[in-house]
């Protein structure tokens, strides 16, 4: 694997880590100045000129505060947070035979994206954490899979995945702004969106 691909994969992995619930295992490490330095150098290696998310190396949240911020920003199940789940931001299915009221609507779980991701995991013999069985298309999982594609898949596969699946971050940010999520998580989503946009161009070149 090329040096740049290793950098891309690990940035996707870092984002996946940060966009899943914070845990004692690695929270401090993820947000430490060391990680910030490392991320800075990886971005430089890639020639990707993005400002670091404030969460990494900047403003610090302790684990409890981070857990709270994460829950209220991205995981509250009651319409209070911007759930980072692809299906919610896409029409439920493109299959014209569906006669469910939500077929062409956005805002629901279990859409095409969700079913497709579940099928990908199954075909690749990947197991997802059981608490995500309702959302195989959770942003954290998608970023994780993207890292895996960078490490093991072709550039076409990466391109496809970015354009077909990781194209909804602008909508997520819109939802995040409508609900007023924690600024550090908003900032992180902006970074994720911009990095994905950069990588799409990068892959096209």
């Amino acid at each position: 694997m090329e040096r740049t691909d290793r950098a891309r994969a690990s940035i996707y992995n870092l984002l996946a880590e940060l966009l899943m619930p914070p845990t004692a295992e690695n929270w401090e490490e993820l947000t430490s100045p060391g990680t910030a330095e490392w991320l800075q150098s990886e971005l430089a290696e890639l020639g990707c000129n993005l400002p670091l998310p404030a969460m990494v190396g900047g403003e610090q949240l302790d684990l409890a505060a981070a857990g709270d911020a994460y829950y209220h920003s991205l995981a509250h199940p009651l319409g209070q947070s911007a759930l980072p789940i692809e299906s919610i931001y896409k029409p439920w299915t493109t299959d014209p035979s569906c006669e469910l009221s939500i077929a062409s609507e956005k805002g629901y779980l279990g859409g095409d994206a969700s079913a497709h991701l579940a099928d990908i995991y199954k075909a690749l013999d990947l197991a997802i954490p059981p608490e995500y069985s309702h959302a195989p298309d959770h942003l954290g999982l998608e970023l994780s899979l993207m890292a895996l594609l960078v490490e093991n898949g072709s550039r076409e596969q990466q391109s496809l995945f970015l354009s077909q699946h990781l194209d909804w971050l602008p909508d997520l940010l819109e939802a995040a702004d409508a609900r007023g999520i924690h600024s550090l998580y908003r900032d992180l989503l902006v970074f994720a969106r911009d990095f994905i946009a950069w990588d799409r161009v990068n892959l096209a070149e």
Partner: peptide, 12 residues
């Protein structure tokens, strides 16, 4: 009305 919306995949 609703059954027709279902049949024709119309948004709400």
């Amino acid at each position: 009305r609703v059954a027709c919306q279902m049949q024709n995949q119309l948004p709400h």
